[in-house]
């Protein structure tokens, strides 16, 4: 069971404000997710190398050659706020 403090901590790191009801719900949902993932602990994995990836590929590289990316207009198209070619975001700190 994930503790209330842990939920608050993770919410703070994610810059989320959770009210009392949401804190409760998140705690219960996160606990379910963690319980689900922990099923893997029931398997005997002695002698199995830990892997970071599901596919057995290595060294997938790109040549150092440029492409035409997005235009400024395209880049900003989904921005809720933009100014002078920039994304405009709420003030920090």
């Amino acid at each position: 069971m994930i503790s209330r403090e842990e939920v608050e901590h993770v919410a703070r790191l994610a810059r989320l404000h959770l009210d009392e009801e949401a804190l409760e719900r998140m705690g219960s949902e996160l606990s379910q997710i963690i319980d689900y993932v922990q099923q893997i602990g029931e398997l005997d994995l002695a002698g199995v190398e830990p892997t970071a990836h599901a596919v057995a590929l290595t060294n997938v590289f790109r040549k150092d050659e440029t492409w035409e990316g997005l235009s400024q207009e395209e880049a900003l198209r989904n921005a809720p706020n933009a100014e002078a070619g920039h994304f405009a975001v709420p003030r920090m700190g």
Binding site: D64, T66, W67, G69, L70, Q72, A75, L76, G85, F87
Partner: peptide, 27 residues
């Protein structure tokens, strides 16, 4: 000092107009 970014092919240049060396990957 590469031609392109670490994980996409956008050009690494300085002093360009803002948000003109971007793509879905680096955004």
């Amino acid at each position: 000092k590469t031609n392109t970014k670490m994980f996409c092919s956008c050009a690494v240049t300085f002093g360009e107009e803002p948000n003109t060396r971007v793509c879905p990957i680096c955004l």
